[in-house]
Computed example of a mutant assay.
Amino acid sequence: MLRLISLLLAFSVSHLAHADDVQVAVAANFTAPMKDIAALFEQETGHKVLTSFGSTGKFYAQIQHGAPFDILLAADDETPARLEKEGTAVPHTRFTYAIGKLVLWSALPALVDDKGAVLKNGTFTHLSIANPKLAPYGAAAVEVLQKLDLYSALEPKLVQGENIAQTHQFVVSGAAPLGFVAMSQVFEGGKLKSGSAWVVPAAMYTPIRQDAVVLLPGKGKRAVDAFVKYLKGDKARAVIRSYGYAL
């Protein structure tokens, strides 16, 4: 028995000795699934995930100024490609980890119909969207409004969040009765968690391909390589699907 305990302790010490931190910059729309994935990864590997959540545009600026992130999980595919081209990301490490879906959502149960006709009725004071210059979900929202020929009419009612998390919070708080948010923020297990929603048809906006890339500070790190492998694996992909993303 003592020998077994000694072996278990030795294994535990060895496991911890090889554990490391991985610093991940994560697009705000991916907050909930990332927290689940990070918890599973830490439990299985012993590595520690240090996460920062925010807008892809702000992360890009921070990375350009030397922020020590190991990995970027962006809300688009353009930013990781730009970082590779500019030499601040490790070449050939970019991959699509999720494809986002846009939803018009209200915390009020009966406000948003399943066709989005509430937008044409215009019987609301404010409409929350993410800043289209910083957030791909905001750019997608503008694209939808333009396709519906409603952008000019609704522009005075638009309330812009710095990122999709703040956009969602505007609706939760009642600052805006409805808004365009990420499906992952309001759906779980394929079901709407609360309120009312219109899942915008994918044909109405450019696909929101969300790419990940390893940044120069993460090059060659065991924990970084392990996390990238885990993110591509079945367990992480199951979590991603459960929040409404396509793969």
Rank of each mutant, 00 (worst) to 15 (best):
L2Y: 04
L4A: 10
L7Q: 11
L7G: 03
S12K: 04
Q23F: 06
Q23R: 11
F30Q: 10
T31C: 04
A32D: 12
M34K: 12
M34A: 07
K35C: 03
K35P: 02
D36K: 09
A38N: 05
A39Y: 08
F41W: 05
F41I: 04
E42M: 13
Q43W: 09
Q43N: 10
E44F: 01
T45P: 00
G46S: 05
K48P: 00
F53D: 05
G54L: 07
Y60G: 05
Q64H: 06
H65F: 06
H65W: 01
G66R: 01
I71W: 02
I71T: 02
L83C: 06
E84W: 10
K85I: 00
G87Q: 05
G87K: 03
T88R: 12
T93W: 04
F95M: 09
A98K: 05
G100V: 08
K101N: 13
V103M: 03
V103Y: 04
W105Q: 00
S106E: 10
L108F: 03
D113G: 12
D114N: 15
V118L: 13
L119Y: 07
N121W: 08
N121I: 07
T123G: 08
H126Q: 15
H126R: 15
S128G: 14
K133G: 09
K133Q: 05
L134G: 01
L134M: 09
A139G: 11
A140L: 13
A141D: 04
V142H: 07
V144L: 09
V144R: 06
D149A: 15
L150M: 10
L154D: 02
E155T: 07
P156F: 01
P156M: 03
K157S: 12
K157N: 14
G161T: 04
N163Y: 13
H168L: 14
H168P: 00
H168G: 01
F170N: 13
A175T: 12
G179W: 02
F180N: 03
V181W: 02
Q185W: 01
V186L: 03
V186A: 03
A197D: 02
V199F: 00
M204Q: 14
T206R: 07
D211E: 14
D211T: 11
G220P: 02
K221M: 09
K221Y: 08
A223F: 02
A223T: 04
D225Q: 13
K229R: 14
G233T: 06
D234Q: 14
R241Y: 03
S242G: 00
G244L: 04
G244R: 07
